[in-house]
Amino acid sequence: MEAFKSFLDSIDNEAHKEKMESLLKWVAKTFPNLETTVKWNQPMFTDHGTFIIAFSKAKAHFSVAPEAKALNQFTTKIETAGYSQTNNLFRVKWSQDIDFSLLKAIIQYNIDDKAECATFWRS
């Protein structure tokens, strides 16, 4: 989690910081083969140099960005979980529970779908 220290330290609200740290630790533990990095001030997880998922913070929520293809695949489940969505991310209010089974499915989808991907982003 050392890679994410500066990002986590930038979260002023202690409860939000703890929630984000818990989430990042969960991803790292659940998917130990993923690499960690920070780009564009967002903690990211990558696999063989290709993007898998990123997170960002805002005042009222944090965002989850798994790329548009994964979002399109999981739109109904994201809506069912009560999260709002754009073309490139979905938002989890700080007051909402994290749907870990949904996150696990999205991350696994990206790992599987991008197994042969040789670029950071999908083309």
Score class of each variant (00 low, 15 high):
S56K: 05
A54L: 04
D113F: 09
S6H: 15
F45P: 10
T80Q: 15
F62L: 05
F100N: 02
V64W: 02
S101H: 04
A105Y: 06
M20S: 13
E14V: 10
S22C: 02
R91M: 11
L102D: 05
K19L: 12
A115I: 08
A115G: 00
P43E: 09
R122V: 09
I98Q: 11
F74R: 01
P66F: 09
V64R: 01
F51T: 00
N110G: 09
S6G: 09
M20P: 14
E18V: 07
D47T: 00
A105Q: 10
R122K: 14
K59C: 06
Q85A: 07
Q73Y: 13
P43L: 12
K29D: 09
V27S: 12
K19D: 03
F45Q: 07
F31S: 09
D113C: 03
V92G: 03
Q96N: 13
T76L: 14
D113V: 04
F7Y: 15
Q96A: 14
T80I: 13
A118T: 11
A3S: 06
L89H: 07
A70V: 04
D47G: 00
N13I: 11
S95T: 15
T86Q: 07
E35Y: 07
F120T: 12
V92F: 06
N88E: 08
K17C: 12
I53T: 13
L34G: 08
S6C: 01
S63F: 08
A60I: 10
E67L: 14
L102H: 04
K114H: 08
T86A: 15
N33E: 14
K104L: 03
S95G: 05
I11F: 07
A115N: 06
G49H: 14
H61V: 04
M44W: 02
D113T: 05
T119D: 08
K29G: 04
A115R: 05
I111L: 15
A54C: 13
I11S: 03
E116G: 14
E35M: 01
D99G: 03
T86V: 06
Q108T: 11
D113I: 05
Q42G: 02
K17R: 15
A3M: 06
K57R: 12
S95H: 03
L89W: 01
K104F: 09
V92K: 04
L71Y: 01
N110K: 12
F45V: 12
S10F: 11
D113L: 02
W40K: 07
W94T: 02
G49E: 13
K93I: 06
T46P: 04
K104G: 12
H16C: 01
N87Y: 05
S6Q: 14
L23K: 06
Q96I: 06
D112A: 08
E79F: 07
H16A: 09
G82D: 08
K39W: 03
K93G: 15
M20Y: 14
E18T: 14
T76C: 05
V64M: 01
K29W: 00
A70E: 10
L71T: 01
M20R: 08
